[in-house]
Amino acid sequence: MSKRIEVNDLNVYYSKFLAVEEVSLVIEPRTVTALIGPSGCGKSTFLRTLNRMHEVIPGAYVTGEVLIDGNNLYGPGVDPVLVRRQVGMVFQRPNPFPTMSIGDNVLAGVKLNNRRMAKSDADALIEKSLMGANLWKEVKDRLDKPGSSLSGGQQQRLCIARAIAVEPDVILMDEPCSALDPISTLAIEDLIEEMKADYTIVIVTHNMQQASRVSDRTGFFNIAGTGKPGRLIEYDDTTTIFSNPGVQATEDYVSGRFG
């Protein structure tokens, strides 16, 4: 189910602008990896290259390679649609489909792809995914209500349920808690802890306590200045990054003396 990600010499461009430079790292299966760093340093940009969402932006492209269990995402002939079916994503702002009910939102990955599914299978999938996202108890009686009728935290968990319903191997989370209150944040952090058993998770966060709470390994991104490309400064076990970082810039950042 869960897969190993290997990134080699990745450069990420927006047209001519080099946004992220020379990233190389290895993410082991069944781990949570946190990416931290100041705003605009390329964390989210890097995250979006891991399921080829980066190239949705006009003029954006990538050089280097990203291997998922040895398969290069950027090899010739790779279909981004197939990549995204294996690497799911949860966004910063909850974005349930406004025209669909809660249940249909969970099934969106199936329904939007025109796949047929027996009613009983669909119900089972809805229940399993919502259970996985810790939302089942709250919404089981109103699955036919619109997804936008939920609170922000519930909507975000609905988006997580939607992402795991397509049974990906890797889940990317782009600041999933930044728009949520502490209680909902806690619910999602607990969820990440549980989901670690099945998925490889990469999470971008601005909240360093969150990074230290949920992640096994942490990557620190930084930029030398505006207009300069972002770089991966340090990548190590979370405990090492937060207690005994190898680079001065990392120590300054995690101890709050900078950024």
Partner: peptide, 27 residues
């Protein structure tokens, strides 16, 4: 139509034409 909805559909592995047909147009 917010771009987030298109991205949400892409991230679920939905091809572009189905995203337009089933997410963008209904919205």
């Amino acid at each position: 139509v917010p771009n987030e909805l298109r991205e949400a559909a892409y991230a679920l592995g939905v091809p572009k034409w189905l995203t337009i047909l089933k997410v963008v147009l209904p919205t």
